[in-house]
Amino acid sequence: MRLYTRTGDDGQTSVKGGRVRKDDERVEAYGTIDELNSFVGQAAAVAAAAGGLDELVVQLAQIQQELFDCGSDLAFAEPKSRQMKMDAEPAVRLEGWIDAHVEAAPEVTRFILPGGSEVSALLHVCRTVCRRAERRVVTLSAELPVNPEAQKYINRLSDYFFAAARFANARLGVPDTEYVRSAEVFRKKK
Rank of each mutant, 00 (worst) to 15 (best):
L67G: 00
L74S: 01
L113H: 05
P148I: 06
Y160I: 09
C126H: 01
Q64S: 11
K22C: 08
R110D: 10
L140Y: 07
A142T: 07
T109S: 12
Q151K: 13
A61C: 10
E95D: 13
D87C: 06
T177M: 09
Y153P: 04
V27M: 00
L74N: 01
G11Q: 14
A48W: 07
G41T: 12
A133T: 03
A61T: 14
A163K: 11
A43N: 12
R156F: 13
E25Q: 11
A168P: 04
V125F: 14
Y30A: 00
V92I: 12
G116N: 10
Y179S: 04
E66D: 08
D69W: 04
R26E: 01
V20Q: 09
V40P: 09
Y160T: 07
G41M: 11
A50V: 04
E78D: 15
R127S: 00
A163D: 12
G8N: 10
P90M: 08
L172E: 08
C70V: 15
P114V: 13
G17V: 13
M86V: 15
D23N: 13
F68R: 01
V125D: 03
G18Y: 12
R181G: 14
S81R: 13
D23S: 08
F39P: 02
A44F: 06
T5G: 06
Q64W: 01
R136Y: 06
D176V: 05
A77I: 04
Y153F: 15
L36I: 07
E184P: 03
V20Y: 13
F111H: 05
E134K: 00
A165L: 11
Y160F: 15
S120K: 03
F39S: 12
D176G: 06
N155R: 07
M86D: 06
E25I: 05
V27A: 01
N37F: 01
L113F: 08
H124K: 03
H101T: 04
E25D: 14
D69R: 02
M1K: 07
L36S: 04
T139C: 04
A77F: 11
R6E: 14
V20H: 10
A142R: 14
R26S: 03
S182H: 06
A100L: 03
G52D: 08
T5E: 05
Q65L: 10
D54C: 01
R26T: 07
L94Y: 02
A44Y: 04
A45C: 11
A165V: 09
C130M: 00
D10R: 15
P106Q: 12
M86E: 05
G31E: 00
R156M: 12
S38A: 15
E134Y: 02
G96W: 05
Q59D: 11
E134V: 02
V146N: 02
